[in-house]
Design a protein around this nucleic acid. Structure first.
Lengths: 173, 173
DNA sequence: ATTCAATATTTGAAGCTTAAAACAATGGAT
DNA sequence: ATCCATTGTTTTAAGCTTCAAATATTGAAT
């Protein structure tokens, strides 16, 4: 074993000259491109959801979480899975219940918790929307081949894990 | 030349059996993973921007567009670059002007248009925030190597072009 | 000169979103 | 039994966001 210097996180002379602020333009450009992609796709799907089904994306996303959960889910679980605040979910659920797409009932075991599930109408409505939604997404990515789709999945998986690590243990500011 | 059947967009027997709805689960999973990544990163940066600088992400993003544009930019141009509605920009600009970070003036050439630019205080404030922001982003992606960053850039570039194509020419619903 | 479609911006209504505080219920430690 | 930190939900205030309608201005065609 030779003694190679390993200085993964140390500052080279150039970054010291910049006052300890290393150059990370590549990561910044990556983040901006990722954000652009997501914004474009989200905007397009939101528009189509509105034009075609007169529904908002947050409501559709909430219903998607509930699909395949016959017993439903608590508001808190919905909040965690959708990565939005509790109060946000309260409002969305209220509106969807008013529309007759969701039903809520208090938990027997824990009187704080409320279970929410799709109504029969909710299931039927969602099935129609989801099929078309899937086609839209497929078309949005249609110029990518299967290999590119797989590569993106893998790399985004790695990115996701990196973000989780950094969120748990942020850089000191 | 042999006569190979090319049926890129035709339906195979299996998808016909499903009622003309081909299976595109891979693209759907890719979209959901991309959205998860973006949501996690955006949430983390929003939190840090708030904790550290008491500023919102939309305001920071708007200032970022104005940096390096000494002559400023019209509201409409800001709206296009940020990919948000005109009315949205009006509100953000109003608040940033109130905070003394932005200045607006009517265009001489076109009295409908208003140019917006960073004030001196805006430039200084932004410089501090941007440096830290860059470090946050670098740390969020720190587990990715340079090759992975490049691959992601390239693949997201391809994805972006695909989305642009699909948005111009959507699938018939 | 007048008309009119296009462009730049603002406004208002509705809905989404967060953060923080409040409230209610749980369950474990004493 | 009581305490109390934790958990599940709601509420409120502030801000973000879109869409559509309104207003003002431009520039080109007549």
């Amino acid at each position: 074993m030779s003694a190679e210097p390993v200085e993964t996180h140390s500052l080279d002379s150039e970054s010291r000259a910049r006052g300890g602020h290393a150059d990370h333009k590549a990561e910044l450009r990556l983040w901006l491109r990722m954000l652009t992609c997501t914004t474009m796709i989200e905007g397009e799907i939101r528009r189509r959801m509105r034009d075609r089904f007169d529904i908002t994306l947050p409501r559709f996303d909430l219903m998607a979480q509930l699909e395949r959960m016959p017993d439903g889910m608590t508001l808190g679980e919905l909040s965690r899975r959708m990565m939005v605040s509790n109060g946000n979910v309260t409002g969305l659920v209220d509106r969807l219940v008013t529309e007759g797409l969701l039903q809520r009932r208090q938990s027997d075991a824990d009187r704080r918790a409320h279970y929410v599930s799709l109504t029969e109408a909710g299931h039927q409505t969602f099935a129609v929307m989801a099929a078309e939604h899937e086609d839209w997404v497929a078309d949005l990515f249609a110029d990518l081949g299967p290999v590119e789709v797989d590569s993106l999945m893998r790399l985004l998986g790695a990115a996701k894990r990196s973000v989780q690590r950094s969120s748990r243990n942020p850089v000191p500011s």
